[in-house]
C-alpha cells in the first residue's frame, strides 16, 4: 500500500517541533483524513479542530506546505507526496496546541460591528420585498464560513499585527453584506473609516486568493466599501452637495 509522510507541528505556545508521521494513503483522501488516521493510530492526543469535513463549517483551517487551506478540502492528489507534507497551524493567531489556534479575537471583533437594523417591514405580515438581483451581492458575502483563512493571510494582521486597528477581510465583507442588504437602515461608514481601519487595506488580494468559498472579497467587498468611504468623507464636491442639498 502507498504511504505518505506528514510533517506536523506538535507543541504549545511555549515550545514545539515538527514531527514526521508516515501513514497509508488511498484514493480520494484529503489532508484531514491523513491527520485523523495519524491521530487514531499513532498520536491519540494530536490536537486538530474539525466538524463537517465537507468545507461547510470552516473549522479545519491550517497551513499546508505554507498555503492557508481547509484540510478537509485539500486532496492528497493535489500536493506533491514525494517529500513530506508540512502541516502547521495558522500563524496569525496565538497557538493553543498542535494545529489548533486561539481565534477568539475574531469573535470579539464581530461584536463591535453595528448590528443589522432593518427598515420598517414592507407588508402588514412583517415581511419585506426584495428582488433577487438586489440580494445576489450580499448573498455572496454571506457564503462566508468563518474559516478565518483570509485573516490569517492578511499582511496587516499577519506581519504588522495591527489587530487593534484593523478588523481584517472577514469583517470587511461582514460589514459589506450589512451595508448592501437592501433592507438595512444603519450606517457603518464612519466606523469603517475610523476604528475599523479600512484605509489600512492596500488591496493585495491575498485574502481573495485563499477564500475557500471563492468570495471576491477585495473586488466585490472591500473596494466598494472604500469607494463609499471616499465618496462620503473625502470628496469635497460631494460634501458640499450634502451640506446644501440636505
Amino acid at each position: 500500500m502507498a504511504t505518505a509522510t506528514f510533517q506536523i507541528w506538535r507543541g504549545t505556545r511555549e515550545s514545539g517541533e515538527f514531527k514526521d508521521y508516515t501513514t497509508p494513503i488511498s484514493d480520494g483522501m484529503v489532508v484531514l483524513d491523513a491527520v485523523h488516521q495519524i491521530q487514531a493510530e499513532q498520536a491519540n492526543d494530536l490536537a486538530v479542530r474539525w466538524n463537517c469535513k465537507a468545507g461547510k463549517c470552516g473549522s479545519c483551517s491550517a497551513e499546508i506546505n505554507g498555503m492557508p487551506k481547509l484540510m478537509c478540502m485539500t486532496r492528497l492528489n493535489q500536493i506533491p507526496l514525494d517529500k513530506p507534507v508540512r502541516i502547521e497551524p495558522m500563524k496569525t493567531f496565538p497557538l493553543i496546541r498542535d494545529l489548533v489556534t486561539d481565534v477568539s479575537w475574531n469573535f470579539e471583533v464581530k461584536k463591535t460591528i453595528r448590528k443589522f437594523k432593518p427598515r420598517k417591514p414592507d407588508a402588514p405580515d412583517g415581511s419585506w420585498r426584495m428582488s433577487q438581483a438586489d440580494v445576489d451581492r450580499p448573498q455572496e458575502f454571506r457564503k462566508c464560513i468563518e474559516c478565518f483563512l483570509c485573516q490569517d493571510v492578511c499582511h496587516v494582521l499577519r506581519d504588522h499585527h495591527m489587530h487593534g486597528e484593523f478588523i481584517g477581510p472577514r469583517f470587511m465583507i461582514y460589514t459589506a453584506q450589512l451595508e448592501m442588504n437592501p433592507i438595512d437602515a444603519d450606517d457603518r461608514l464612519p466606523d469603517l473609516r475610523k476604528s475599523q481601519g479600512i484605509g489600512l487595506c492596500n488591496i493585495t488580494k491575498c485574502c481573495t486568493k485563499v477564500c475557500p468559498e471563492s468570495i471576491h472579497i477585495t473586488d466585490n467587498g472591500i473596494i466598494p466599501l472604500k469607494e463609499r468611504v471616499v465618496d462620503r468623507f473625502f470628496d469635497p464636491l460631494g460634501r458640499l452637495f450634502r451640506k446644501f442639498g440636505g
Binding site: K115, F116, P118, P121, D125, G126, S127, W128, R129, M130, S131, Q132, V135, P138, Q139, R142, Q177, L178, N181, D184
Partner: peptide, 21 residues
C-alpha cells in the same frame, strides 16, 4: 412567523419574482 423573524434579524433568503421569500 419564525422564518419572517430570521429575515428581521438579517437572513437573506432566495426570492420569488415578486420579491417574497
Amino acid at each position: 412567523a419564525r422564518v419572517h423573524e430570521l429575515e428581521a434579524w438579517g437572513a437573506i433568503f432566495d426570492r420569488t419574482k415578486d420579491g417574497k421569500i
